[in-house]
């Protein structure tokens, strides 16, 4: 039997742009879905599944748009299930393992604090589809941010153990936050065209959100400003391959079928 080819994607700047955001949402949604049935309390089982569902919904819209912008007959499932690790374009942050509840919530907090600002800004995109996706996503990310912020405060200002765990998670994940603000030449052109927003303009407000929550939680942000990069160009951590082999197993085993 023939091997299963990866989906070839013609990565124009716009396709790549949509794909990167779609991959962020899918991979983070997938990670959160791993908690389903295993959370510390039933209410959190529901909350984490709920956020996962929102993110997978965003991913589907963004993949569908990327496929349309590409115009080569790809669709959401071909893009999600038949690209390998080197073709995935998500942030390193979102592929990090769930770890304990603190690590999951810190990852969510770093991402949602950005996504909330990002989607609100993207509502003014000259690309009407991206603006519409932003308008829907913004409502969801505001809820995600509130949920994560409340937990950071609860854990930071809870017990000694929870304080220690959440601080450790912040220290561990901090180096993956720089990539939230990275921009390449293709994106620079989209920014000039008013299609994308410059994430650098969000960094100040993102840091303010983080500082406010972290200080209320009696925690501190790391001084270290070395930032890990690579996800946007397909140079991932070792975690993503395992995630994809699980995510893609059905499509890889039974190619080309309808489910």
């Amino acid at each position: 039997m023939m091997g299963i080819a990866n989906t070839e994607v013609s990565e124009t700047p716009l396709v790549l742009y949509a794909l990167r955001r779609a991959d962020d949402s899918l991979i983070l949604g997938h990670r959160l879905s791993e908690w389903c049935g295993h959370a510390p309390m039933l209410e959190e089982d529901m909350a984490l599944s709920n956020i996962a569902l929102d993110l997978i919904g965003q991913a589907r819209e963004l993949y569908t748009y990327a496929a349309k912008a590409e115009g080569k007959g790809n669709d959401e499932d071909k893009l999600a299930y038949l690209r390998d690790v080197r073709q995935y374009r998500n942030l390193l942050l979102v592929e990090q393992p769930n770890g304990d509840f603190a690590q999951t919530l810190v990852r969510q907090f770093f991402y949602s604090a950005f996504a909330d600002l990002y989607w609100r800004a993207m509502m003014t995109s000259r690309d009407t589809t991206l603006a519409a996706i932003a308008a829907k996503s913004e409502k969801e990310s505001a809820y995600h941010l509130r949920h994560a912020s409340e937990w950071i405060i609860r854990l930071g200002d809870g017990t000694e153990e929870s304080h220690r765990r959440v601080q450790a998670a912040i220290d561990h994940l901090w180096a993956f936050t720089g990539e939230l603000f990275s921009v390449d030449d293709g994106e620079r052109a989209l920014i000039h065209a008013g299609i994308a927003i410059d994430p650098g303009t969000l960094r100040g407000r993102w840091l303010t959100t983080l500082s406010d929550v972290v200080s209320e939680a009696t925690l501190v942000l790391p001084q270290n400003d070395w930032m890990q990069q690579g996800g946007r160009s397909g140079r991932h951590s070792e975690h993503l391959g395992h995630l994809l082999s699980e995510l893609q197993s059905m499509q890889r085993t039974f190619p080309g079928l309808t489910w």
Binding site: R60, D77, E246, M250, Q251
Partner: peptide, 15 residues
């Protein structure tokens, strides 16, 4: 959930 064969099925199962 992590192995559902399409994004539509994955979302429905999660829900």
């Amino acid at each position: 959930i992590t192995r559902a064969p399409s994004l539509r099925r994955k979302a429905a199962l999660l829900a």
